[in-house]
Write a protein that binds this DNA or RNA. Structure first.
Length: 273
DNA sequence: ACTAGCCCCTGGGAGC
DNA sequence: TGCTCCCAGGGGCTAG
């Protein structure tokens, strides 16, 4: 599942391979991935554009193209951007950009949940999916005071709240579980009942784990790969996610798995209160 | 205003 | 071995 560290890793590795290249031609196998335009319009507006640079906001990857065009991609569950040699093909490739250097930039997505938008640069400040996002966890805007204030208004369980992109942008199911383990807070706790100390610990855990996971190039659990087909490394560092029935690395107790808000949730019953 | 639940998808694991 | 069933899960949407 691509969360902030995975999307950031894709951004960094992809940028090295495609900056300055032009999109000479486009093939679309699954038109539905283009969220806001017909595929014919999409193709017409993207052809001959140069890829200037890539940015990221939360889990959104943003391609800045020449001519003031902006391509926004959300990978959801199984989306991938890959740079491949001309011959490569697969039934999961839904979009192909034929680049000026002879390589193909492809979007592949087994479950087809991912979406791509193409907008004009001037529309970017009004683009709704980005407008709703909370602060970037590694930015100065993400302050403890603000985090505490925002957290108080949620009456639901802290795990569910961490998945809400309006609070902080970029956490998904894996890192939400890991953050709560590091903070020593049980995922079922109500957000508005947390103590000041617990909120600080959650805040610090987010600020620790996200850059650490980026340094490890993200977590490969299901099918996330880097744009060159490599794996992330953070799955080796996971303390609770996907470790149901195994020993807690801190106290040795058995890790539990429950379902919260329809999401698998992992925690240590002793370390997380 | 907030929250719970459904839906989109398909590979893969469980069960028989 | 091979079939069927059902689960995973981000985020948009709807209903309460």
């Amino acid at each position: 599942m691509p969360e902030l560290p995975e999307v950031e890793t894709v951004r960094r590795l992809l940028e090295k391979k495609i900056i300055g290249k032009s999109i000479k031609d486009i093939k679309i196998n699954f038109p539905k991935i283009i969220a806001n335009l017909s595929f014919q319009k999409f193709i017409g507006r993207v052809r001959e554009r140069k890829i200037l640079f890539l940015s990221r906001r939360g889990k959104f990857l943003i391609f800045h193209l020449s001519g003031g065009k902006i391509l926004i991609s959300h990978l959801r569950m199984t989306g991938q951007w890959l740079v491949v040699k001309p011959a490569a093909d697969s039934k999961f490739i839904h979009l192909v950009f034929y680049l000026s250097n002879g390589h193909k930039l492809v979007y592949s997505d087994i479950r087809k949940f991912g979406r791509i938008w193409l907008i004009d640069k001037k529309e970017l400040p009004k683009f709704k999916p980005l407008l709703k996002l909370g602060p970037e966890p590694m930015s100065a805007e993400f302050s403890l005071a603000d985090f505490r204030k925002r957290l108080r208004k949620y009456k639901t369980r802290i795990k569910t709240v961490l998945l809400n992109q309006e609070l902080v942008a970029g956490l998904g199911n894996i890192y939400a579980d890991e953050v709560l383990f590091l903070a020593g807070v049980r995922p079922t706790r109500k957000a508005n009942n947390l103590t000041r100390t617990e909120i600080s610990k959650i805040y610090e855990a987010i600020k620790d784990i996200i850059p650490l996971a980026i340094r490890h190039k993200g977590t490969t659990v299901v099918n996330y790969t880097t744009p060159d087909g490599g794996s992330g490394g953070f799955q080796e560092k996971l303390k609770v996610y996907g470790r149901k029935g195994q020993e807690c690395p801190r106290c040795g107790r058995e890790i539990r798995r429950i379902v919260l808000g329809g999401r698998g949730t992992h925690y240590c019953p002793k370390c997380q209160r």
